[in-house]
Amino acid sequence: MESFVVHTGTAVPLRRSNVDTDQIIPAEYLKRITRSGFEDGLFAAWRKDPDFVLNQPAYAGATVLVAGPDFGTGSSREHAVWALQNYGFKVVLSSRFADIFRGNSGKGGLLTAQVPQEVIEALWQAVETDPSVPVTVDLDRRVVSAGEVVSAFEVDDYVRWRLMEGLDDIGITMQRADQIGGFEASRPSYLPTTTAVT
């Protein structure tokens, strides 16, 4: 996993609350066998509307999503995180995230930064006034800034540490390779392997 310390990019204002994971990625996309390429399914239903914010050229290439409260509710599908990342988002800002979505994001390396709703409102205004305004998310200092808007954000300490070190769950466990190897050496010899027997 890439390490995340400071990120600067443009932002999309998503003026909706209770964005559930069925909206983020509809079930019909779950049959796919890859982990990449879900960007076309991201907000698929909403994107049919030509006026939807992601369809506006001014917001092309944005990497920060500024969303309303209760983002990521509903189904636990990990595809929701993949869809956002595949589209290019590195950070989602909201005043409240659903637990499972936030957990899945931490595992996948997508930063969910929590700020008060008035900061969301201020960010919406800033990026609607000037879509090219750079938004900087500093994970080390836990500060988000865009033009005149500057705010601290909340993020779980453990998730922050993992993101800054670029460690996913697997990366962390792999740091215990010596312990795993030691355990393996102590396993009884009668335990089976799947290698074909003749």
């Binding site: 996993m1 066998i33 890859t34 982990r35 990449s36 990990e78 993949w82 996913d168 697997i170 795993i180 392997t193 799947t194 290698t195």
Partner: peptide, 22 residues
Amino acid sequence: RPQAFDGLRDSGRVVRRPDLTL
């Protein structure tokens, strides 16, 4: 979940114990 194998590939990892996997 074929995506699990994709994840390994993306991060350059291998299956630690294919002999305990079937």
